[in-house]
Design a binder for these strands. Structure first.
Length: 455
RNA sequence: GUGGUUAUAGCUCAGUUGGUUAGAGCGUCGGAUUGUGGUUCCGAAGGUCGCGGGUUCGAGCCCCGUUUUCCACCCCA
């Protein structure tokens, strides 16, 4: 009575090889975060649904995984409610927890709840999986990791600079060519204001965000379908087609947005950020892209998006400035800015470009091969010594045939084997074999440590 | 949520117009080789053809449903 095992839609297993590769990404990101003084936190996989609901819009609520209450969860539901078959209403009665959808909202909750233990500005990073009941497809999963780094409680644009520096450093270390696209919500608001459609800011930004994907014509169609006047659309055209250097674009915007205080404010912020980037000699290309909008409505200032140049994949990092994120949890006036590295997409990029380092630090360096109980016992103190010297080693735990033990080393890509039989025990040594060259020699513990240390 | 697509051995995949006992490569295990891996040779194990129904004398193949895979849209990392 065996059944074929499977895992839920949109989830994945990771093999040891894959984990080594993923850890390379996480460790790289982590060490850069720490370089800038960010500290790690974790929050629970599940949150109260009241914390999550309504934070991601109506679409987002549908994508939340809800957790059925334990026990007899129908106790509080009466027959009338059951017969009504209203899923949303019923869900509220039978599920009070859900899996986290991102790391930002739980972080906002964390800040409010732990404000007495935090000193501001609070710089935190968080690397954890999130879950979305989305339909999986390329580069898109139902369980995936986010690597979030945020500063809250500081309005300074130096924070924006630091985030750009972090992006620059992380992708240099990972050897991925990227371009950082940057825009400002205030500029977008200013534009909406100038063309006389300030109310429709969301519809406009959502549409122009698709510009490089569907083209100018379709964008205009979509904007028109949202009830925006032809006059406004005409005014929008020169702005959408703005080109040149960042400075040229900003200059042009300054005159276009002359009538909008918010817009000018945004232009000035961008100017400051570009100057800072130049001063700090950011190597990655930082490009003002007015078509960058990002769907999330809680952004209020700068918005970032990072694209890989050599691979066709969605954005691999994104974020922005959000004022008052903690407001919904009763703590107003806390401004924050942060970005999120999409670890799973970075993983896909590295896989396609094959950019992993050749040797992994996690790998076993020596395998002890032995032929009987006596040999096993003889090896144990050796293993202890090696481990005390930080050499990853293991012993084949049963007296199998040599062929089998060596194949095991081969499959695990272990560079050295220490063969132990009667001769070696009598000499108080091991036969150390280099699996790559095939060369072997009798060695004392010190000699083995030296030999492997040389690698 | 909408549209398309896929499912056959542990993995990657063949399988003719619906016709007897469903094949290959890789991997696994055993042997050639009792203390030497990767290469080679020989052999073996391994399948309710995703699941449920239907058509048919007969279904891996046709029809319906369902689940799953991948892809596009919506949205997003």
């Amino acid at each position: 009575m065996s059944q074929k095992p499977s895992i839920p839609k949109g989830t994945r297993d990771f093999t040891p090889q894959e984990m080594a590769n993923r850890n390379y990404i996480f460790n790289t990101i982590k060490s850069v975060f720490q370089l800038y003084g960010f500290q790690q936190i974790e929050t629970p996989a599940m949150e109260n649904l009241s914390t999550l609901m309504g934070k991601y819009g109506e679409e987002g609520d549908k994508l939340l995984f809800k957790i059925l209450n334990s026990g007899d969860f129908l106790t509080n539901v009466n027959d009338a409610e059951l017969l009504e078959r209203n899923s949303i209403k019923l869900t509220n009665k039978i599920a009070e927890k859900g899996l986290r959808y991102d790391l930002t909202v739980p972080f906002a909750r964390f800040v409010v709840q732990n404000r007495d233990k935090i000193s501001f500005p609070f710089k935190r990073y968080q690397i954890q999986p999130v879950w979305r009941a989305d339909r999986p497809q390329k580069g898109r999963y139902r369980e995936f990791y986010q690597c979030d780094v945020d500063v809250v409680g500081s309005d300074s644009l130096l924070n924006e600079l630091e985030l750009i520096q972090i992006v620059d450093e992380v992708y240099r270390r990972l050897k991925i060519n990227v371009v950082i696209k940057i825009n400002n919500r205030k500029i977008l608001s200013g534009i909406a204001e100038i063309i006389g459609e300030a109310e429709k800011i969301t519809d406009i930004t959502v549409a122009i965000d698709k510009l490089d994907k569907i083209g100018l014509e379709k964008v205009n169609e979509e904007i028109a379908s949202k009830g925006i006047s032809q006059d406004a659309i005409d005014k929008l055209q020169p702005i959408l087609q703005l080109s040149g250097t960042n400075a040229e674009k900003l200059n042009r915007l300054k005159s276009v947005l002359a009538g909008s205080e918010t817009g000018l404010n945004g232009v000035e912020e961008m100017g400051t950020i570009f100057t800072l980037c130049e001063t700090m000699q950011i190597q990655t290309k930082v490009e003002l892209d007015l078509t960058l909008a990002r769907g999330l409505n809680y952004y209020t200032g700068a918005i970032f998006e990072v694209k890989a140049m050599d691979v066709e994949i969605g954005s691999i990092t994104g974020g922005g400035r959000y004022d008052n994120l903690t407001g919904v949890f009763g703590m107003p006036g806390v401004s924050g800015v942060g970005i999120s590295f999409g670890a799973d997409r970075i993983y896909d990029v590295l896989n396609q470009l094959n950019l992993y380092p050749e040797t992994s630090e996690e790998q076993t360096q020596v395998l002890f091969v032995s032929f009987g109980e006596n040999e096993l016992m003889y090896c144990l103190p050796w293993l202890k010594t090696f481990r005390e010297n930080s050499i990853n080693c293991e012993i084949y735990p049963e007296p199998a045939k040599m062929k089998k033990q060596l194949s095991y080393a081969d499959n695990k890509n272990i560079p050295f084997v220490a063969i132990v039989g009667e001769n070696e025990m009598n000499a108080n040594k091991v036969m150390l074999k280099n699996m790559k060259t095939g060369v072997q020699q009798l060695c004392s513990p010190e000699e083995v440590i030296r030999e492997i240390g040389l690698k």
